[in-house]
Amino acid sequence: MSIEVRNITKSFGSFTAVNDVSLTVPTGELVALLGPSGSGKTSLLRIIAGLEKADRGQVLFEGEDATARDVRHRGVGFVFQHYALFRHMTVFENVAFGLRVRPRARRPAESVVRTKVTDLLKLVQLDWLADRYPSQLSGGQRQRVALARALAVEPRVLLLDEPFGSLDAKVRQELRRWLRRLHDEIRVTSVFVTHDQEEALEVSDRVVVMNQGRVEQIGTPADVFERPATPFVMGFLGNVNMFHGRVEGGRAHLGPLSVDYPEHADLSPRDAQGFARPYELDLAREEAGPGFWATLRHVNPAGAIVKLELEDGEKRLVQVEATREQFEALKPAAGERLYVTPRQVRIFVA
């Protein structure tokens, strides 16, 4: 089922958490709401779920207005960051809860409940833990129980609030791959909130980047990473080197760097920011095209990628990532002066 959000605004006191946000999630997609804390992503998710009321705007499910519908009748499955399992119930009873609280006319028979819960627990690979209590499970297992519980009511939409937020790094990795596979299998329209760009890029079909209550960009993971629409998206998705400066007369003067910028041929200068990712910078011992000199301060050779830290003429940090082959070919020493050439600079005019 598709979700459409129209001009949603939500304030808490004087703080505007969500500011006039509109977006569409097509049926069967897995969409990530990505942003720093306080960007309004969780508030937006809770408004879609019906756990929070928007001040203005509409939420539509499959084109049908669901704004006034209570959370009980929205048909959403919600997974909380801290699991929110019922601690006095076994894993089995937790998953069965949604079926047992149905109005008598729609309540399935005990045998149906039993089959269904067992199937779901098999789906999340926890059928062997059915009789345990939540306190006896690990974090990753609890989150899978929470997911099975949400799926038990056959939601038309699955909403996940930082589902891997309180798990340790290794379990996170496993669980997000598992979630991706699960989604490919059951294909229920899903929205998950995260502040981890790697997670968003790895798991989702599309990413919604949010900042200060607004949507900065919506696109596929490749889109937002390769073609960021705003300086914020550029900076939020991965490491960047930023150069402040201005554009005038068809050129951009960005700190130590001067490059052609035909998009602004006007002679009146405007402030601009240039961005280059660490792996988009080449190092050499001679001048080679538009670039600048910098001094190598530190090398971190651990890993497949060698990370280098340099300082330009004004003591600003420049981060460079080189492949092992590039590094071995150059063999630079700390303290050496090197010429830095960006293969690509993304310029945002203010």
């Binding site: 779920a49 756990l51 919600f78 909380f80 929110a84 399992l85 809860f97 609280v101 949400a150």
Partner: peptide, 10 residues
């Protein structure tokens, strides 16, 4: 926990 129960239809 109460929100979870409500979202499950309770």
């Amino acid at each position: 926990v109460e929100e979870a129960a409500a979202s499950l239809g309770a």
